[in-house]
Simulated assay, not measured.
Amino acid sequence: MAHATVEYTANIEGAFELDALLALIARHMREEAGGVFPVGGIRVRAIRLDHYVIADGKGMDDAFVNIDVKMGAGRPAEFRQNYFDALFASIHGFFEPLFTLRPLALSMYVEEAEGWKANTIHQRLQKAD
């Protein structure tokens, strides 16, 4: 399981390629994690935020992107540090052009999650091999 939720302020809608960002994160989870994340458990989604206040509320161009990542427990600390450092660097690079155009805050938080789930996508992927 590796799920990522990208939250972004409405005032940057269209200022970056949202689908390309989601694809970058999913690709990173599939290809750069060394098989740690089962492909059938990867979910990447975005939520546009229409209501928000940033800092003092006066910078109408102020914007933010926050990425929350949830993964199943048990991955070694060294893997988590190295993998998420690299993922954040890739995401930061993706937003580099936007950083030069406007005030922007970028953050990523990682949580080990315990949950209940049912998923037959794994079976479909096994049949496709």
Rank of each mutant, 00 (worst) to 15 (best):
Ile67Val: 15
Asp129Gly: 06
Arg45Tyr: 08
Gly35Ala: 13
Gln81Lys: 14
Gly72Ser: 07
Leu125Cys: 11
His92Asp: 09
Ala23Asn: 15
Gly14Phe: 13
Phe37Val: 06
Leu104Ser: 00
Phe99Cys: 12
Leu125Phe: 08
Ser90Lys: 06
Tyr83Arg: 02
Ala15Phe: 01
Ala10Glu: 14
Leu22Pro: 09
Ala2Arg: 01
Val53Leu: 11
Gly93Ile: 07
Arg43Ala: 12
Tyr52Ala: 04
Asn82Lys: 05
Phe84Tyr: 06
Tyr83Gln: 00
Arg80Cys: 03
Tyr8Gly: 01
Glu96Ser: 15
Phe16Val: 08
Phe37Gly: 01
Met60Leu: 13
Asp61Pro: 03
Met1Lys: 02
Leu101Cys: 04
Ala105Asn: 08
His92Glu: 08
Asp50Ile: 05
Asn119Gly: 08
Phe64Thr: 03
Thr5Ser: 08
Phe94Cys: 05
Met60Val: 12
Ala33Arg: 12
His51Gln: 09
Glu17Ile: 07
Leu24Arg: 00
Gln81Ile: 08
Tyr83Trp: 05
Val39Ala: 15
Phe37Glu: 03
Ser90Tyr: 01
Asp62Phe: 04
Asn66Pro: 04
Leu98Lys: 11
Gly115Ile: 05
Gly34Arg: 01
Thr9Val: 06
Glu78His: 13
Phe64Gly: 00
Ile47Arg: 13
Phe16Asn: 04
Ala23Asp: 15
Val65His: 02
Ala105Ser: 13
Arg80Thr: 08
His92Ser: 12
Ala105Val: 11
Pro76Asn: 10
Gly93Val: 04
Ile25Gly: 02
Asp56Ala: 13
Tyr109Gln: 09
